[in-house]
């Protein structure tokens, strides 16, 4: 990566951080409904890994999807509009925070049933492989998902069929409020990939360049036709599981310890060391603030879906659509 690319990734991480802070604010104001799962603290895993993909590679993730959406190139204004339930959102206001997607960006969602998108990822990869294309599918999930049946069915099938998938476990060490020690029989999630004969790596998820490098190697492995690869990124979410999390399960000093290992701060130090001026970074910071301010304005000013939208897109075939009743 050259310096310009480094700055782009830095900018993405800052945009995600500001977007998430703003989302929390809008949630507290009652403008965002449902559940809201913030990505703050995990920016380097999504940004680092997605930066290693080619545009024709697929990305699919779970419900903590805002950061991955930004990394895939989705504009914050479309994300915020979706969260505010507006018709200008990426899913016309039908999906909400947990179901962001943009097919044009090969970003296949935002899926909110834990682990359920892992089988979907096998299908995405199967279709590409079937057509003889060299696309790789990046499938993100949390440590919590590694305990569910879907994970094991999906990893097994991916290995049996040699599918071009990089499974990326964003190990933030808690499935909701239950720590991995209390929920997982093994301490490292990648050990579970060993059961399926799948090569794996474990990387510091707070180090952007380390994640990027590991993801690039994993993607190259899958693209070369060597089958799936399992990448575990050790990370941490600074906020609760969702906005309604009382956080009784962890101590503030643990959170503070991880905050001192902040992925944005660490990458900032790397950039400064490599000769980027503080002014350049400040300019990126200011630009990110402006982007989010514009996005909020756009989302707030956008209309809600019209009532008749309720009856649309239930089926793809127009003649199958239910009639208003």
């Amino acid at each position: 990566m050259d310096q310009a690319e480094h700055l782009t990734l830095y900018q993405q991480m800052v945009v995600i951080r500001r977007l998430e802070e703003k989302s929390a604010e809008l949630y507290q104001q009652g403008k965002i409904g449902g559940f809201l799962h913030l990505y703050i603290g995990q920016e380097a895993t999504g940004v680092g890994a997605v930066a290693a993909r080619s545009p024709h590679d697929n990305v699919i993730t779970a419900y903590r999807d805002h950061g991955i959406a930004v990394a895939c190139g989705m504009e914050p204004k479309v994300i915020l509009a979706e969260m505010l339930g507006k018709v200008t959102g990426c899913c016309k206001g039908k999906g909400g925070s947990m179901h962001l997607a943009d097919k044009r960006l090969n970003f296949w969602g935002g899926h909110a049933i834990v682990g359920a998108h892992i089988p979907l990822a096998t299908g995405l990869a199967l279709a590409n492989k079937f057509r003889g294309e060299d696309s790789v599918t990046l499938c993100f999930f949390g440590d919590g998902a590694t305990n569910i049946g879907y994970f094991h069915e999906g990893l097994n099938l991916a290995a049996v069929w040699d599918l071009p998938i990089v499974f990326i476990c964003e190990n933030n060490q808690y499935g909701m409020g239950t720590s991995i020690e209390r929920a997982s029989a093994v301490p490292e999630m990648r050990q579970k990939a060993e059961a399926y004969g799948m090569p794996s790596a474990r990387v510091d998820g707070m180090e952007l360049l380390a994640v990027h490098e590991a993801a690039a190697a994993a993607i190259a492995h899958a693209r070369a036709g060597q089958g799936p690869y399992f990448l575990e990124a050790l990370t941490y979410r600074y906020r609760g599981h969702s906005m309604g999390d009382p956080e009784r399960y962890r101590k503030q000093e643990e959170v503070r310890r991880w905050q001192s290992d902040d992925p944005i701060g660490k990458f900032e130090a790397v950039l400064l060391k490599r000769g980027i001026s503080p002014d350049d970074l400040n300019a990126i910071e200011a630009q990110a603030e402006a982007t989010i301010a514009d996005a909020v304005r756009f989302a707030e000013e956008s209309p809600f879906p019209p009532p008749e939208e309720l009856w649309r897109d239930v089926y793809a075939e127009p003649e199958a659509e239910p009639q208003p009743a």
Binding site: T122, L124, L126, A127, R131, Y150, E153
Partner: peptide, 15 residues
């Protein structure tokens, strides 16, 4: 689970 899930994913992606 993965039979149907893989079929759904493949259907989304053109098969």
């Amino acid at each position: 689970g993965v039979i149907v899930g893989a079929a759904v994913g493949a259907a989304m992606n053109g098969l």
